[in-house]
């Protein structure tokens, strides 16, 4: 989780790529082969696991529980501090669902996630194919492509904000040179969502490039040689050899990307705060806006939106774990 976002979301990128085709999150240890731990080893094992278990309960489970509790009660600022908020069941969820902002936020979340994923994936794929050819500097250049992924999100977001500035931004200046009228990237409701999506795509390309590239490295080269002997063109080689053999890695990449993109918050918040007038608000920023963005915080509804997001992320997370497990078994 990353400041998550991809990042942050960034979670674990480096640990994964080098591992070849199986790629992502192969960090989970395999089940012990034949040996079953005796009672002593069991005790010792849980003694070593005690800190992390306490940690998970205190710093994951408890804040999550507080969040669920927030969403089931009617909180005011007073009761937030002093306690005693009345239990209201699913009222906050009903309120959120009836909110006129719900529809747009859902649409923006889907569009932002879908467009980001598709563009990151295919740009990453193109670059990965390109970088599988060995040429001078290819390793160095590929390493440089990681830079956007390493920068703190506030750095990327503020740089893009400045580049997309209506009056003095370099983007509008270049458009002017091409004879295109200036665009109010961040301040017009029409373009705000597109702007944050562009920045997010830029940040996400390295992840897709690295994952897909390491997947391609694992495809045996004699398959390509055979295809070449059969007279397959580069285009055919990609669609008939690379793409089908890459499908497991591609599935993992897309699923991880999906979970990461769903929770993107920093970029949107820093660039537009979800505005103007909610034009670039996703579930993540809307939830935050409700809880922290207004003078009068609405903790209950904010937590309700957040919990909907958790359910979405964990659902795709479960699919990811299943897919990964299946791939492991297939090996």
């Amino acid at each position: 989780m990353n400041p998550t976002t991809q990042a942050r979301a960034r979670t674990a990128l480096f640990a994964r790529p080098v591992r070849g085709a199986r790629g992502a999150a192969d960090t989970a240890p395999r089940r012990a082969p034949a040996h079953r731990p005796g009672a002593r080893a069991n005790w010792a094992g849980w003694a070593f696991l005690a800190p992390v278990t306490i940690y998970l309960v205190a710093f994951y489970a408890y804040p999550m529980y507080r969040n669920v509790e927030l969403s089931l009660r009617h909180y005011t600022v007073r009761s937030f501090v002093h306690g005693g908020a009345p239990f209201t069941g699913l009222d906050n969820y009903r309120k959120v669902l009836d909110d006129p902002a719900f529809g747009p936020a859902l649409t923006h979340t889907l569009v932002f996630t879908g467009v980001s994923l598709l563009c990151q994936f295919w740009i990453g794929m193109g670059l990965a194919v390109f970088f599988t050819r060995n040429f001078r500097l290819s390793a160095t250049l590929r390493a440089l492509f990681l830079v956007p992924w390493l920068l703190p999100l506030i750095v990327s977001a503020s740089t893009w904000s400045w580049m997309l500035n209506s009056d003095s931004g370099i983007v509008n200046h270049v458009l002017h040179g091409l004879g295109i009228a200036p665009v109010d990237w961040l301040t017009s409701p029409t373009w705000a969502l597109a702007s944050v999506t562009i920045a997010n795509i830029w940040i996400g390309i390295p992840f897709n490039l690295v994952m897909l590239h390491s997947g391609m490295q694992a495809i045996p080269s004699d398959i390509y040689e055979a295809a070449e002997l059969d007279g397959a063109t580069a285009w055919q080689r990609f669609w008939k050899v690379t793409f089908p053999l890459l499908r497991p890695v591609a599935a993992i990449t897309l699923l991880l990307g999906l979970v990461y993109t769903l929770k993107v918050f920093d970029i949107i918040w820093i660039m537009t705060k979800g505005g103007p007038a909610g034009a670039s608000a996703t579930f993540a920023t809307w939830s935050y806006q409700l809880g922290f963005g207004n003078l009068l915080p609405e903790f209950g509804p904010g937590a309700a939106v957040g919990n909907l997001l958790v359910v979405m992320a964990l659902a795709f997370g479960l699919i990811y774990v299943r897919v990964q497990r299946k791939q492991r078994e297939a090996l």
Partner: peptide, 22 residues
């Protein structure tokens, strides 16, 4: 526990932030 750790990585940060705030 490994499974829980894997899933923990998927929880959006804002939810954690809100819980931590409370």
């Amino acid at each position: 526990l490994s499974f829980l750790l894997l899933m923990a990585q998927m929880i959006p940060g804002i939810i954690m932030a809100m819980g931590f705030y409370a």
